[in-house]
Structure formats: C-alpha cells, structure tokens
Write a protein that binds this DNA or RNA. Structure first.
Lengths: 339, 339
DNA sequence: CTGTTAGCGCTTTCAT
DNA sequence: ATGAAAGCGCTAACAG
C-alpha cells in the first residue's frame, strides 16, 4: 500500500500549494526558483498560496532531487571552548554564509576517534566540504573516509599521511622573532615553556626558539626548556626556572595559557624576568613585567580555509583542481613595558 | 529522457552495493540498519561490497525517505567571537551529539534581519530544533517563520512577542548580590557602568544594582550611572566617575568588557576603588584593586537549552508537550583582594 | 508558458 | 529471509 499521500495536519508541500493555487507543482517549483517563464498571474496565485499556507520549500528534498550537496561545511575542532577555534569557526562562517553555505561544528576534545566519527558523519550527511583541526598525528583516515570530491582543509596543523589543503600559522617565524627580540633587548638567558613537542605547533615554536638562540650563538640549555599542559603546570615550571642557580632573564611561552601561568609565578616572585608569549589575552598590556606578545588573526585562518574550499567547489569543471595548497598566516608582535 | 541512472565515476549508491553483492537494495538497507532478519551469508556479502566500494549511506535520502528531520539543531548567536556564546555552542553540542544530532551555527552580528534569515533557512533545511540568542527586542517573527513542530529555545534574553522555552542567567540576582557585597564591605558609594538599558541583561542587572542599594536605604545617584558599549567607552566613563567631586568607592560593571575598561582607568589613576563585574576574565584574580566577580556557567546554559529541546523531540507522542518552560541558571561570586 | 513523466537514494509496505 | 512496488518532496527533461 502506498504511504500516506495527503498530508493532513502535517507541513504543507509543494503539492498542497499547487492545488490551492490551481496549478501544477512544477509551476510552483518554477515560481520559487524565480524562473522567468511563469505568467504574472500564476506567479501571484502561487505566492498567495505560499503565504496562505505558510509554505517553506523542503531543502532536503531539493538537495536530493538536484543531486547537489547539502550546502554545509563540516568543521571539527578540538574544542570550541578555546577562543581561538571559536574565531576560526567565525572566520569560516563569515565567508561561506555569503555563498548560502552553513557551518556544522563539532568538538573532538582531542580524541582522534571522535574526530574520525564526526568526519564520517559529515560525509554521510553530504556536506560540501570539511575543515579539520586535527587532533591526532596521523590523518590518513581522511583518505579512506572522505571521497575525492569532498575537499578537506586542515587548519593549524599540517596533514600527515594524506594530501590536503592546509592553513597554518607561522609558528616558527613567530617564535623565532619573539626569542630574537628578547635577546636584542639584552636578555640572553631565555627559557622556554612549551606545550608537548608531539604537537606540531609546539615543535615548530620550539624550533623557532632554538633557531633564534643559535643565530646569536647562544646555547639551548636543557635546564631552560620546560613543558606544560595548562596554566598551573606552567606556573610550577616557572617556579622551578626561577629557582635555578642561574635563573633566566626572559621566558618564552608557546601558548597564552602557559604565559598566564608563567606570569603568576613571576609576579608572585617579583622576579625581574621578561615574558614573551604566543597568543594574546586580556590585559596582556598591563602586566607587572615587560611583556612581548606574538599574535595572529584567527578569523583570518578561517577565512583562508573557507576560500581554499570555495575555490574547489566552484560548479562544473570550473573549480580549482590543482595540487594541494598550503597557506601560512603571518604573526604580529606587540610589546609592553620594555625600557 | 530519464536522468542518468548508472552512476559511473560518481559516488556509489545502495543499488551499486546491491548488484555487487547480488542481492536487492532492500537487503543492503536492512544490513545497514542492523535488521535482524538478514541471513548471515547475505550480511557478509553486503558488508564486503560496502567495504569494497567504500560505500557510505546517503543521509539526505534517508531523511527524506523516512520523513524525519535532519538531525541537526540550528543555533543563531550574535557573535561566535564572544567566548560566552562559543561556550554556549559547546554546551549545546556536547548534549545533542550524544543523540546523533549536529549543530549548525551562525552569527547574526546583532542584526535582527540576518537572524531571521538564518532561522528561515534552518526551517527550510529541516533542522529538528532551533536555539536563538535573540538580537532584536521583538521576536514575534519566530511564530510566523517556525512551524509548531520545530521547538525553539531562546537563550540569555527572554522571548518577547512569542511564547518559547528559554534559558536565562540570574542577571538580577547576580547584580543584586554583587552590589550588596560591596556595601557590606563598607563601600557605600557604588557606581554603575552598564550596557545599553534596552538589552534585557543590561536592564536586569541595573535593576539588581538598584534593588541592592535600596535594601540598604542607599540612593541611586544619577551621576553614578553610566553606560558603555566597549572597553574604551567604559574606561572613559570611569575616568569621569573618578573625577566627580565625590567619586565612588566601588564600581559595578555589567559585562567583562566594561570591567576591563574600568580597570584600566582605575589602575591608571591609582584610585582606591573596588571593582565588581559580571562575567569572569583572565587574570581577574590579579588586579591591583579589590575585585568581585559574578560569574556563571555558559556551558550549562547550552546544556539546559539542549535538554529543553530534546524533551520536546522525543519521538511519537512521548515528547514533552506542556507549556513553555523557563530555566534560570544561577550565578556564583568570587572575590579577590578585599581586606 | 505549463504540465507530465521519471527519477534523486533511500525506506516502508506488502507479498513471496 | 528476501524482494517488488511505491513513495518521501522536489526538479530536470521533455512534450505540448
């Protein structure tokens, strides 16, 4: 037996509009698509019927019928609680919205398995494109789970084990310059409080730190290199640094959370240490010690990622089909309280 | 002429899987749905074919066929750049993800028209439910644009001109308590730096401020009441407050941006003024003046909003059908540097 | 300019 | 346990 054909209390369909307007569903479809080949009279009647019924076209049926995709980009970040990723989402959204595309977001909580699940779900849902801030270190699952025609862009960390567009921060350059500026200001004992070296950004920033010291012929002292995962461990690491026989006269922190933790320790000890940090934060300009902040535009990361995707999504054969591209977003430096 | 039936280079469909496995599409469908009534042998052949083709079920077709909704919640916030709303999104997402529902986010940029457009789009896209942090002051458009069966929840600001579930912060109570604590600490000249009174949160917080003063028999002095839209205007307002013949000995700010601006002015003037502020921020515990912070759990707002929606979405007649509900999330108070 | 037909990819219903 | 038929709501293709 056929399934119910006449929707009673349900949402009106094109068919309902058509019969109320006494035209065929095709005419309704044409009106709603702004087809020029509809008589003014029919157009009016259709629009009147639409209004009377409060009809809204069903995009799901439309997408299926046209064989198009959903008109959505799937985004997986490690956590939306991180303002950086929130701004990334904003940047993407601001660009794609202008093209009638929506953003679906999910937080992986640094769990590669849940990231993979989300990506698979995005694929099933027929998203047009996918943006990932990868949590794990191997991303080859993307090649297996995402069909060729769905462009993928990685953000903040480069693809590994798979070829994909990506948008990165100039982690190396920012760290290099921050460290360099410290030395130029006479701070020759620059310590390092970083995030785990297994994370790309962490290792790049460490590399920049080392390279800058090297460029001045300064050593990278093991005792000056610490790792931290959160403000309080950064604080503890800093306490230990300050307790060294020869304590540092500057500390470079690779994340704002580390910088905040380090500041607490430095402030409490009234130590005469300068601070350099990656990522800005509130009141960074009002600390009680000389401070240098490396920052970058997280919105811009999102905008660039969106642009890479849109380039590939242009309809027909007009989309960009070339090799994968890599965009590097520059950093800026601000300093406060230096003599 | 029929549209292309045999997908060549395109994505495989159930039909392709079926013919490779030498079964009917229905059997494939059943296997993918974990129907028990499939022979072990057929199941295996189907799964093998699925794997071989890299087949992924098309959720768009599935949704249309089942007459279900998309499995997505649409969220409109004023801006994702505001960490508060980012956490709201996170809270919603954390709950709905467990039910296989995704989050679609968009920023209205405080423009009621773009908010309305987004809501309409969500409706067309067949989202299951909608969450709105409303930008305008009249939300009656929701009644017109959103069909009855799509639940809507408003967050942070109550519905006006339409009946809907909502989740609010205890703005009044938080402001009342903050102001009260100031007076209890001997600060009797408490000034107010608020956001525009047309915004619900602003007016509630002002009401709380006034009520607290009243409870002590203290007057609300016009010269002590200022409005600001951003840190710098808050800073200026504070400068003017400090220049009064009888300057305040405490300032209650209704947003963290205002608190930050006020702090800059107070710090620079080395004024002996205590600060009270709504919304926490980094380093709020390390300011150079006594500080009291009213805070609340933005994630919790999201979780509660999601719960309200899910209650109504339970399948069949099992969903909550009662009157609209209003949830108020409590505030907490922290203080630093008071004698 | 308008309507008819067929089909998007999947699932429900019924029959085998 | 499996399949055939029909339909979800919409639109491309064709015919008039």
């Amino acid at each position: 037996m056929p399934r119910r054909r006449s929707a009673d209390s349900s949402v009106p369909t094109m068919r309902d509009v058509a019969s109320l307007a006494k035209v065929s569903p095709m005419t309704v479809s044409r009106v709603l698509q702004d087809h020029p080949t509809v008589s003014a009279e029919n157009r009016e009647r259709v629009l009147a019927a639409v209004k009377e019924l409060g009809y809204r076209r069903n995009d799901v049926a439309r997408v299926l019928s046209q064989g198009r995709r959903l008109g959505a980009v799937g985004l997986s970040v490690t956590s939306l609680a991180n303002p950086f990723y929130a701004r990334l989402a904003l940047g993407i959204e601001s660009v794609i919205t202008q093209h009638g595309i929506r953003l679906m977001v999910t937080s992986s909580n640094e769990d590669p398995e849940s990231e993979r699940e989300a990506v698979r779900d995005f694929v099933s849902r027929q998203v047009d494109a996918i943006v990932v801030v990868p949590s794990g270190t191997n991303h080859s699952y993307l090649a297996a789970d995402v069909p060729q025609h769905i462009p993928v862009t990685m953000v903040a960390r480069p693809p590994s084990g798979v070829d994909a567009d990506c948008v990165l921060v100039d982690d190396f350059g920012g760290a290099y310059e921050a460290t360099r500026q410290m030395v130029l200001r006479g701070r020759t004992r620059v310590a390092f409080v970083g995030n785990p070296p297994s994370v790309y950004t962490g290792s790049e920033r460490f590399r920049g730190y080392c390279a800058a010291l090297e460029s001045f012929g300064l050593p990278v002292r093991d005792s000056y290199v610490k790792r931290a995962r959160d403000p309080s461990s950064a604080e503890q690491a800093t306490v230990r640094l300050l307790a060294l026989r020869e304590p540092p006269d500057a500390i470079f922190c690779t994340t704002n959370r580390n910088t905040l933790g380090a500041y607490r320790a430095v402030h409490r000890a009234s130590a005469s240490v300068a601070l350099a940090g990656f990522d800005d934060f509130e009141l960074s300009d009002m600390l009680s010690v000389p401070t240098l902040i490396v920052d970058y535009d997280a919105d811009e990361l999102g905008r660039r990622a969106a642009q890479l995707l849109l380039d590939r999504l242009r309809p027909g054969e007009h989309g960009y089909q070339g090799p994968m591209r890599r965009v590097v977003v520059p950093t800026t430096i601000a300093e406060y309280g230096f003599a």
